[in-house]
């Protein structure tokens, strides 16, 4: 009976399309997960480690000022509702993107800030990738520095994580490459002379030396998508948020490093 039950169950699983596919064998085991930090030169590590040399810390300082600045028709600041970010925002970035009940889907940290502006400050959204949104996001995320990534467990979120995983595994662009081809299968190698790395999301927003500025995870994702010569997604596109969700689930337990420095 047990054998029959097992056969029936596996048939059902196959029918439901939720069997483990061969690709899953290439995913990085938790014990081998490595932050981008571990691939960096001693100089770049030192720059991140010391708050007086880490250029991302300027974003934190400016973000704190924005946190306390009143704005919008409601003339409210973030602090008017959330008070001391060091208390209220501790651990928040470690579980984003998170589920928004009203939208019925995931929102990332930048989108949550803009939703708060719309819903509670009656203020216009801050534009993606401009200084204010990056600084405020960095300030919020820095409150979780050193805390382990703990993805939002909301059941309604799981189909979006699965979509992000599908995108991660899907070859695209003229070069016909998927994220997994480099960041699961070849993270110990070098593209030109740069470390490929595991594509872990545990330091964002980052100060990237190549950009000479702070930048979001979505900016970094868009760089790679351009690199494989695929059509890009707009900032805030559902595909990019789903990819963020999958990346965070893939980095479960890794400590946040925001603001990380990367080459």
């Amino acid at each position: 009976m047990k054998v029959v039950a097992a056969i029936v169950l596996s048939s059902l699983l196959i029918a439901a399309g939720i069997v483990l596919r061969p690709l899953i064998a290439t995913e990085i085991p938790a014990s081998e997960r490595r932050s981008g930090y571990t691939f960096m030169s001693p100089d770049t590590k030192a720059m991140q480690d010391d708050d007086t040399t880490n250029p991302g810390m300027l974003g934190v300082i400016e973000g704190e000022a924005l946190w306390n600045r009143k704005g919008g028709s409601a003339d409210k600041s973030c602090a008017d509702c959330h008070h001391d970010a060091k208390v209220s925002m501790k651990g928040v970035a470690a579980r984003y993107p998170s589920y928004d009940k009203v939208l019925g889907g995931p929102v990332n940290l930048e989108q949550r800030i803009n939703l708060c502006r719309a819903r509670h400050q009656q203020a216009d959204p801050l534009p993606y990738e401009k200084h204010d949104l990056l600084a405020l996001t960095t300030y919020v995320a820095e409150q979780s520095r050193g805390m382990p990534i703990t993805p939002d467990p909301t059941p309604e979120l799981q189909p979006f994580v699965a979509k992000g995983r599908d995108l991660f595994m899907h070859r695209q662009g003229q070069l016909n490459l998927a994220c997994t081809n480099c960041h699961d299968d070849n993270w110990d190698k070098h593209l030109a002379s740069s470390a490929v790395t595991q594509g872990m999301p545990n330091g964002y927003p980052i100060y990237r030396l190549d950009w000479q500025s702070l930048g979001s995870l979505q900016r970094r994702l868009r760089n790679c998508i351009t690199g494989v010569r695929a059509q890009n997604y707009d900032y805030g596109a559902p595909e990019l948020v789903e990819l963020e969700l999958y990346l965070m689930s893939r980095a479960r337990g890794m400590p946040l490093e925001t603001p990380a420095v990367r080459p």
Binding site: H170, R171, Q172, G173, Q174, N176, T226, R229, A230, Q231, N232
Partner: peptide, 12 residues
């Protein structure tokens, strides 16, 4: 057999 090729490279 390629997916989502950027416009600049499409068909080339």
């Amino acid at each position: 057999g390629l997916d989502r090729v950027a416009k600049a490279w499409s068909g080339k």
